[in-house]
């Protein structure tokens, strides 16, 4: 027991090593939060472009660009994308690594969000478009006020899952020497030669956040379900 307490003390208390975890967590959360925002924005945009093209045949060029984006991003590992963005695209620019992380994970997530949202839009009955049109609402307004809110509700669980995946995927950020939560735990491991405690602590923190997020989404889903009762 004393040995265990000593290990806990060595791992987290000495030299304020717990700060590797708290600072790492902060970085992880910042990257995830902003990457989710970029991902959602990009994803909705691409989804609307693709769905509009599929439904009306317009936006040919934008649709072509979107398709290339989706193919490239979904066809390569996120870690490779991260490395390319940092070491190739921003090779000669001094840039904050957190920003690079946000960009890389945001651009990556956008591709997955786009396909989720597009499937949501395509799942809405064409009658909803016609009802909008028959009232004089143009395509954009119909999309904005009638289609997207319903599509969003339908794909919310999938979107939430994408956020959770993204949170966990940011753990490869250490490859561009970003000190995120995972890297923080790993630094403690490398200075204390004790792997169990720091890595389990890291895993627990991820788990708690994911479980917390999942329950939040569950609550939101139940609220959105109100209009389904009947």
């Amino acid at each position: 027991m004393d040995g265990f307490l000593q290990k806990l003390y060595d791992t987290f208390i000495v030299d304020n090593r717990w700060q590797y975890l708290t600072n790492g967590l902060k970085t992880t959360l910042i990257i995830t939060l902003f990457a989710v925002m970029i991902g959602m924005l990009l994803g909705f945009l691409v989804a609307v472009i693709r769905a509009t093209h599929d439904k009306t045949g317009r936006l040919k060029i934008l649709n072509f660009i979107s398709k290339i984006y989706l193919t490239v991003i979904r066809g390569t590992p996120v870690m490779v994308q991260l490395l390319i963005i940092y070491y190739v695209i921003f090779a000669s620019v001094r840039i904050d690594k957190t920003l690079v992380g946000i960009l890389a994970f945001g651009i990556n997530s956008g591709a997955y969000v786009a396909e989720i949202v597009r499937s949501g839009i395509m799942s809405i009955d064409n009658g909803q478009f016609e009802a909008g049109a028959s009232l004089g609402l143009n395509y954009t307004k119909t999309m904005l006020y009638i289609i997207i809110p319903q599509a969003f509700k339908n794909v919310l669980p999938a979107l939430a899952n994408e956020c959770i995946v993204l949170l966990k995927e940011t753990s490869v950020a250490g490859y561009i020497a970003l000190e995120d939560l995972t890297k923080g735990g790993d630094i403690i491991r490398s200075v204390t030669y004790e792997a169990f405690l720091p890595l389990i602590a890291v895993a627990l923190i991820y788990l708690i956040i994911v479980v917390g997020l999942s329950s939040l989404v569950g609550r939101l889903e139940r609220r959105l379900k109100k209009s389904d009762r009947g």
Partner: peptide
Amino acid sequence: HFHLFPHL
């Protein structure tokens, strides 16, 4: 088929 807006 009515096509009311179910989310509103």
